[in-house]
Structures are given as structure tokens and as C-alpha cells.
Amino acid sequence: MTESTNNWLAACRVEDAVENGGVCVKHGEEQIALFYFTRRNEWYATQNECPHKKQMALSRGMIGSITDEPKVACPFHKKTFSLNTGECLSGDECAIKTYPVKVENGTVYVGTVPKS
């Protein structure tokens, strides 16, 4: 998937995002968690639903890193997922979708087609 063929959703202004935390973006029936990892100056987006108990919660989770891998911890049971790959880092057989993010002129865009 190249950038040009993705559908970019204008999610919010940079100042509406939470520094070193997440917000939830509504995309039709879908919910996407958008993380502004200010400490690393990086943006990430994933599905908002935690696959463990199917809770719409990841945007309210704490972000951080394990070795150098950026991750988010679900506020319910602290399952952690890689923000890069969506892989579950707590040893479970589940993964989350991740989406591309770009910032242009102070607006944050989320690509609505998940990264493969």
C-alpha cells in the first residue's frame, strides 16, 4: 500500500491530540486510537478495540517502550501491543491493526486502510 492510494482522514489538530498519550478518532462505525508519542516525536494509530476482551479502550491506555519497541498497554488488563506492528507483547495470540499517520499544516491525518 503506497501513501497515495490510502484514504486519509483528517483526525484532529496537533494541539487536540494528547501529548505522550492517545485520543480516539471516529471513522464511521470504526474507532481508531491515535497516539502522539511526543517523547519520540512519533505518531501512531491502531484499532481502538483491545482484542483481549473486545473493549474500546486502547486510546485511554498508557504508552511506553520495551527495549526500543513503542507500545500501548490496555487500561483494562494491561495487555501490551506494539505500536509499530500491532503484535501482542504480552504473549497472547492476538494482534491489533495499525494505521499510517501523517501531519500536514498542523492537521493530523490517519490512513483508513490498515498497514499490512
Partner: peptide
């Protein structure tokens, strides 16, 4: 060091 996590933050 690094970026912290759900253990040290709270």
C-alpha cells in the same frame, strides 16, 4: 531512560 511504560508511569 527510554520512554517509560505502564509499570513506572503510575
Amino acid at each position: 531512560e527510554n520512554d517509560g511504560c505502564e509499570v513506572c508511569k503510575p
